[in-house]
Amino acid sequence: MKKVHVNEDKCLGCRLCEYWCAFSHSGEKYMPDAFNLQKPPVPRIVVEENDKITFAVACRHCDDAICVKSCISGALSKQADGTVLVDESKCVGCHTCVLVCPFGAIRMDEGKAVKKCDLCLKTGGVPSCVQHCPNRAIVYEER
């Protein structure tokens, strides 16, 4: 399946992916509103940074997803197409998935359901982080 991959040698650490991800999942139409009129939304992709090495990390949609196994409420599930999605109405906020994910790809959102990459399936097409990466470090492809 097509997934979001990051080419570390091209990642600039600008963090635009984080902001576009957060905005595209915020439901707002005007980007400044997503961040300036409310508590800034949580991005589902995060740039890891150590001095001059930077790379964005998002959910790998693992074949044998440990987060799905660990989910106590059945909120996380593996879809037929291979994506790992969270049903926000079922999440009880126990954060076990956050703890077990070896990539740190699941994010806590205070008082709300956990947030993770959904490949922008609802908005369709290419994930927002991929579309807006200025150096094409983030790609959406089969590997």
Binding site: L12, G13, C14, R15, L16, E18, Y19, M31, P32, A34, F35, N36, P40
Partner: peptide, 13 residues
């Protein structure tokens, strides 16, 4: 400043 979302891309770049 109405448009700035303090993402700090300008600073990092």
């Amino acid at each position: 400043n109405d448009r700035c979302i303090r993402c700090r891309v300008c600073e990092r770049q």
